[in-house]
């Protein structure tokens, strides 16, 4: 499923909403998550999962082609951990 299909499903279930409003709703949900993580916050969505930020320390890396050493700066990466309910739903047979 891609974003436009997600938007279409929600639009179909909510015929009283303008399509462009459904687009804004979906965009707002995902933007808000990114915005929170960019502020160093966590986003916890019970049953679904939690988004958080992990810090990767600076390190000396190596260019795999030339073998040359390169300094890799510290960086902050988004991380998602699936919620318990979703994990159970994925494995309910």
């Amino acid at each position: 499923m891609i974003k436009s299909e997600l938007i279409q499903k929600i639009a179909d279930e909510n015929p009283h909403l303008y399509h462009r409003d459904v687009e804004r709703i979906v965009a707002t949900v995902f933007d808000e998550i990114i915005e929170a993580l960019a502020d160093g916050k966590r986003v916890e969505l019970r049953g679904f999962g939690a988004f958080s930020v992990k810090k990767r320390d600076a390190r000396v890396g190596r260019n795999p082609r030339s073998g040359e050493q390169v300094e890799v700066e510290e960086k902050y990466v988004p991380f998602f951990k699936m919620g318990k309910l979703l994990r159970e739903r994925l494995n309910a047979d």
């Binding site: 499923m1 891609i2 974003k3 997600l6 909510n14 709703i25 979906v26 049953g47 998602f80 739903r89």
Partner: peptide, 27 residues
């Protein structure tokens, strides 16, 4: 509506589909 967004993503995953939200990421 927030719940609907999450639930549609979750049920697509449960049905075995990958979910790709452009400019956000891929589950």
């Amino acid at each position: 509506l927030v719940e609907d967004v999450l639930e549609h993503v979750a049920s697509a995953l449960v049905s075995g589909e990958n979910v790709k939200i452009s400019s956000f990421g891929t589950f």
